[in-house]
Each structure stands twice: as structure tokens, then as C-alpha cells.
Design a protein around this nucleic acid. Structure first.
Length: 494
RNA sequence: GGCGAGGUAGCAAAGUGGUAAUGCACUGGUCUGCAAAACCGGUAUGCGCGGGUUCAAUUCCCGCCCUCGCCUCCA
């Protein structure tokens, strides 16, 4: 199989091969969540795309070092922890735990390192000192420290805003009247260290410039230096982070080291809901919990999130979740047919795993559990498609196309086994966990329904079609479907 | 105003200089007493609009319209 993934690079605006600088391990950094509430599916779109990227790299034989931060100190975490009457640490830790629960449900591989901002204050202060020594930072009268954007000639290269003119829009007009902002030499300068304010409460740290807290952009630069060094393979985040966050990271890092910083930039487009942007006021900011209440599993959500190319906006709807459910069923059925057709079918995973969307991934059937899943087999077209800028929707289409062509039920044992291995390779790479096939047995059929169904079966055996049909309609009206087979019948919720 | 992404069947979404994957939905058939499942088919002469280049464009070029994002802390 082809060796390397090709990914679009935001900086050079070209598709480039993703290969490790050190020839061994792909080291990459993802901007993580700010933990002041549950993450929504838009946030998760980015994390899922990054997860697929990592899985593809690993599936192609390259180990990874995945670092993703937890932002646990900023205006929102401080504000909301105070509202909740909790310490910042307690507050952010509980939301971090929730984040992890959601990540597990979505079958996201845990980053190898997940550093938090408050745990790296000294590293951040050290970086500011370096910047100040190099003439890139200056302290304002109130004790805040700013980065002098004019001191970095490459500022704006990533976002291609180098020759932009600052327009004084509404938000800027507002911030310009903020006393904080008056202390900056230039409107474009950004905070490295924010002086302590009364509303910060207990949340401040000592520094050479007085008490305060680090600016948001700084944590990523400092933690990248700590765990990945001066330059590393790839940096990723949502498109909205290109400016100013990533631009500022580049400025901080390049000016405080001699490194080249990230060699590749991957940005994930936003998720839209019902054709528009998500917003709290519209009430379309869904969390996994919201969707679980509507009966949708995290696996179904994941499928929807990967069903559009990461670089293009994706429209999320309830119908897309229904569609995902059916698509997963289709895959699961194909998998089952392949399993039946394979020689020495192993213990049927689908039999041993209860249908559950709320359990952690450990109890779900994961192709990752199969030991010899290493090659795409008949799905090489899908695999090749995936390697071209992570074309997941193209790969999914190819997988179905291949399944349609192969007719899983008609393969000989060897072909079935090989096909199943290939399918699992692809599923594992996409992080798709197949659901149990919805069939026959419905555990919680009420006794009266069961009795009616039995009557219908008896009538059918007596070839009393009229009675049988009447009873079937009666059951359907009550919300139950009858499915007959040669041996008997089953009742399924409509 | 600047920068960026996108406009492909009812919905979603790939893709290509040579006439449109795939999933959902819908629909015809086989099978079934009838259904369900399964299997075999069908469903965009068309890819935002108008020009241009070309033997040939949805795919390249130009112009225009529309949607979305970013333009200081939002994945």
C-alpha cells in the first residue's frame, strides 16, 4: 500500500506528503478544548478529523506522538468556575473528565500527552522572558506583557493577512475603549501575560512582571516547545484558529527559539447545522448528550462528522444521523455476512456485545481488536482515496462500492476472510465501530404484544390469512412489526 | 472592504478535460399467502448563472450571483 498520507497545508496552500521529520515518528499538536462546559459536535468535528488523520498515519506504518492541550485558564473558565462556586482546578477538571467521556464515546484515540495550561505556567513565563530579551515583548504600565507584532516580519504569513489594513469594526471599537487595550503600543499586539484583575479572584500567579495569568496563545507555544521541541511535523485545529491564534503561536515560537515551528498546518472546516452556523441563541449547539436524548449513539454522530471532507463545511441535520444509522447497519450486515462466510468464524463479537451507545468504547465491538488487520485487501481503492488529503467521504463511497460489487454472501471462505480483514482495516482506520445488527430478537416486548403476535402466527399456520392480517395491522398500529421466517416469527419495535 | 471555503439529484456528499461514486429517501422486480429481510434494477442529458478556450467542460479561464467562515482570544 502507498506509504504516505498527503494533506493540504494551509501555509503553502499545497497538498504535501505527511512524513516525519525524524524519519520515525510523526509528531503533531492539536489545539484542544477550553474546558468550561460540554464540548459540542462542532468542536468534535475537528477532533474526529484529527483522529482519522492520526489513524491513517498509523495504519500506513508510522507511529505518532500526539499532543493536545487542555485550556484551563482564560476568561471563560475563570468566570464560570466562579459562577459554579468551584475552584478553577475543580471546575476545569470536572469538565475535562466530561470531555474525556465524550471522546471515548466517539472512539477518539487518546493523545499521548495532554498538557494543561495551568500546569505549565513556568514554561510560559520562561518563554516570555526569552521574547522580552529578544526585544519581542514589552511590559505595560499595569503589569501586562504584550508581543510586539512589528518585531516579527513574517507575521501574517499563515493567514495571508500580511498586508491587511486594520479596520476599526464594532468589536475593535469596543475593545479599544477597554482600559486594557490602551496599554498596547499597537492594536495588533497581543497579550502574553495579563495583569491580575479583581475579577480574577484567586486565579493569579506570580511573575517577574507582577501577579497575573498567561495569555491564551502562549500556552500552546510553551507546551509545544516542552513536548515537541522547536520544530515538529504538523499542527492542527479549526479554521477559526488560523487567525489570530496560530498566527500568534508562530510569532511567539519563532521569536523565542530558532525553530521553524510546525512544518505542516491542517485546518478543519466548521460544522453547520441545518444550513446555518451554530449558535447558542438559535439553540442548535448540540452536545453528545443532547443527541443521546434523541436516541442517537456517539458512533452515529462520529459517522456523520466524518461523512464530509474535513476541508469543506459540513451540514449537520437530524436526517444525516438517520442516514448514518442506516449506513452503519448496512456495513454491519455486510460484516456479518463476511463473518459467516469465513472459515473458522471466531467468536461472534456481535453476539457478545450488547447494543449500547452510552458505554465506553471498551465494551463495543472494535475492529481494532482484531490482531491481523493490516491491509486494505479488496478495499485498496478506498485506502488510496483516504491517503489523498484524507478523503473520508470518497473512501466511504468506495467501501460501499466494493461491498456491492463483491457480494459478501457469495464469496468463498478465503475471499470472505480476506475481505473481512480488509473491511476491518478500513473501519479501524476510520475509527468506525460497527453497531450490532438490528434483527430478530427484541428483548422487551410486552406480554400482551407477544400474545397477539403468537395468535397471528397460529392463524397463519392455520392459513387463516384474514385473521393473520388483521392481527398484523393491530400490532402495527401499536407500534410493532412482525417479521416471519421459516422457523417462526419475531416482533420488532417499529 | 480584505482573506478563505463552498454552491453537484428530494436530502447528504465524492469526483473528473471525454460525458456524473456512494449513503439516506423514493421506486420497479424476484422472493414471500401478504409483509419484512435479502437479492436484481430505476431515479441528475445534468453538476449556481453568463461568457470564453477546446474536437470535447460539470471539470480550465474571465465576469457575475448566492451561502458560510475569519478579520483579536470561537473547533
Amino acid at each position: 500500500m502507498p506509504a504516505h498520507l498527503t494533506l493540504h497545508d494551509t501555509l503553502t496552500r499545497t497538498d504535501r506528503e505527511v512524513t516525519p521529520l525524524d524519519g520515525q515518528t510523526l509528531r503533531f499538536y492539536c489545539c484542544g478544548p477550553t474546558v468550561y462546559g460540554p464540548a459540542h459536535i462542532g468542536n468534535f468535528r475537528t477532533f474526529v478529523a484529527q483522529d482519522v488523520m492520526r489513524r491513517v498515519v498509523e495504519a500506513s506504518g508510522t507511529p505518532t506522538l500526539h499532543v493536545r492541550n487542555i485550556t484551563d485558564v482564560d476568561d471563560k473558565t475563570i468566570r464560570d468556575s466562579q459562577k459554579a462556586g468551584q475552584s478553577l482546578i475543580d471546575f476545569t477538571q470536572s469538565w475535562t473528565a466530561k470531555f474525556h467521556t465524550d471522546c471515548d464515546a466517539l472512539n477518539l484515540l487518546r493523545p499521548h500527552i495532554e498538557p494543561s495550561a495551568v500546569a505549565h505556567i513556568p514554561q510560559q513565563i520562561a518563554m516570555i522572558e526569552k521574547l522580552a530579551a529578544g526585544g519581542h515583548a514589552y511590559a505595560a504600565a499595569d503589569g501586562s506583557v504584550y508581543f510586539r507584532v512589528s518585531s516579527f516580519k513574517d507575521y501574517g504569513k499563515l493567514s495571508h493577512l500580511e498586508d491587511r489594513e486594520l479596520r476599526l469594526g464594532a468589536s475593535e471599537a469596543a475593545s479599544a475603549t477597554d482600559s486594557d487595550e490602551y496599554t498596547k503600543d499597537s492594536l495588533t499586539d497581543f497579550a502574553l501575560w495579563k495583569a491580575r484583575k479583581p475579577e480574577d479572584g484567586e486565579n493569579f500567579w506570580p511573575s517577574p512582571w507582577g501577579e497575573g495569568r498567561p495569555g491564551w496563545h502562549l500556552e500552546c507555544s510553551a507546551m509545544i516547545l516542552e513536548y515537541l521541541g522547536e520544530d515538529f511535523d504538523l499542527h492542527s485545529g479549526g479554521v477559526d484558529l488560523i487567525f489570530p491564534h496560530h498566527e500568534n503561536e508562530i510569532a511567539q515560537s519563532c521569536c523565542s527559539t530558532h525553530g521553524k515551528f510546525a512544518h505542516h498546518w491542517m485546518h478543519v472546516a466548521h460544522l453547520m447545522v441545518d444550513g446555518g452556523k451554530m449558535s447558542k441563541s438559535i439553540g442548535n449547539l448540540y452536545t453528545l448528550e443532547d443527541l443521546a436524548k434523541r436516541g442517537y449513539s456517539a458512533a452515529e454522530v462520529r459517522y456523520v462528522l466524518i461523512s464530509g471532507h474535513y476541508s469543506a463545511p459540513l451540514n449537520f441535520t437530524m436526517h444525516s444521523l438517520d442516514s448514518a444509522r442506516q449506513a452503519l447497519q448496512k456495513m454491519a450486515k455486510a460484516d456479518k455476512a463476511l463473518e459467516r462466510g469465513s472459515p473458522n468464524p471466531q467468536h461472534s463479537a456481535s453476539d457478545s456485545n450488547p447494543p449500547s451507545s452510552s458505554d465506553g468504547d471498551s465494551t463495543l465491538r472494535s475492529p481494532a481488536a482484531d490482531s491481523e488487520v493490516r491491509a486494505p485487501g479488496p478495499f485498496s481503492e478506498a485506502w488510496d482515496t483516504l491517503l489523498k488529503d484524507l478523503n473520508v467521504p470518497g473512501a466511504l463511497g468506495s467501501i460501499f462500492g466494493t461491498l456491492n460489487k463483491l457480494k459478501p454472501a457469495a464469496l468463498n471462505p478465503e475471499e470472505a476472510a480476506a475481505t473481512r480483514n480488509g473491511l476491518h482495516f478500513m473501519l479501524q482506520t476510520l475509527g468506525i465501530v460497527l453497531p450490532p445488527v438490528l434483527e430478530e430478537v427484541a428483548a422487551d416486548v410486552p406480554p400482551d404484544i407477544q400474545a397477539l403476535a403468537q395468535q397471528r402466527w397460529d392463524a397463519k399456520q392455520a392459513k387463516d390469512w384474514a385473521t393473520a392480517d388483521t392481527l398484523r395491522k393491530q400490532l402495527e398500529a401499536a407500534g410493532w412489526l412482525i417479521k416471519d421466517s421459516k422457523e417462526g416469527f419475531s416482533v420488532v419495535a417499529k
